[in-house]
Amino acid sequence: MFKAVFILLALSCAASVGIAQEASKILGTSALQQIEGAGGGGIVPWATIGGYGSEGEWGGAASAGGVQVSDLVLDAGGVLIGWNNRVEVSFMQQTLQVNELSSGPFDAVIQQHIYGAKVRAFGHLIYEPWPQISVGVQQKLNLNPNIPIDVLGADSDRGTDIYVSASKLWLHALAERNLLLNVTARYTNANQNGLLGFGNGDGSDYRWVAEASAGVFLNHHWAIGGEYRQQPDRLASVDESPWWDAFVAWFPSKRIAVVAAYVDLGTVALWDEQRGGYVSIQITN
């Protein structure tokens, strides 16, 4: 129930931003709201400022989606607002649940709130020869820290990720198509995104991890690509492996975007080989 209300709220937020002004960026260059709420791909935050707002304009997005892998389900819904193609603020709510068939101490729900902000430092995704560079922060608050802290030995229920992203869209670059590349360096202590808490009880804490995305626009409306995201692997009790995905994104208009992906989260807590699907629907302006 809460979720439905939340999503409605989110969508109406985006819609009201939409009514406010026409936004000029090129179709598809809004990027998507990634799993933590920032403008980006599916799992990696990009240097792009979310939504279609160009210089002097507002943009926005609201998304609802989820990941379903062998033993786990992760729902995610959120909103972002971009201004002047310069600043982006975002919110995302994530809810992790163990599939019904799996059991044990994880028979519970873990919810997390992520507040994000990002600033474009310099460059432009398309027009300038050098890439667009942005700096971002994600403040994460795990609302159900019992399992992460008491069972898995995480240090904290909250953490702050800091990242730097470089994104560039090369026109007519690969098989005469437009090619997007992004690399991100993130300073984090978030175990599985923060869903399994932050750091390890013994003090093992923040470290730099690398993330990357590549995508090709087949035409104005369809893009395919893949992403990689290293994880800090801080918990002593369980392993954490990098995330991968292969995605298809559809931009039928500037109002809506749909992304579907095959994801491989590797080992998550007690479960290994966590592979499955990711789907997200987004309303944009």
Binding site: S54, E55, G56, Y127, R177
Partner: peptide
């Protein structure tokens, strides 16, 4: 500003679409 530039690019793309210009040639 960049919003004018973006807006012109949108119009050019629409102009090429209306003429059935293939995506590869548009990108080029």
């Amino acid at each position: 500003n960049r919003s004018h530039f973006d807006s012109l690019v949108n119009d050019l793309i629409a102009a090429m679409d209306a003429n059935d210009t293939p995506v590869a040639a548009q990108n080029d």
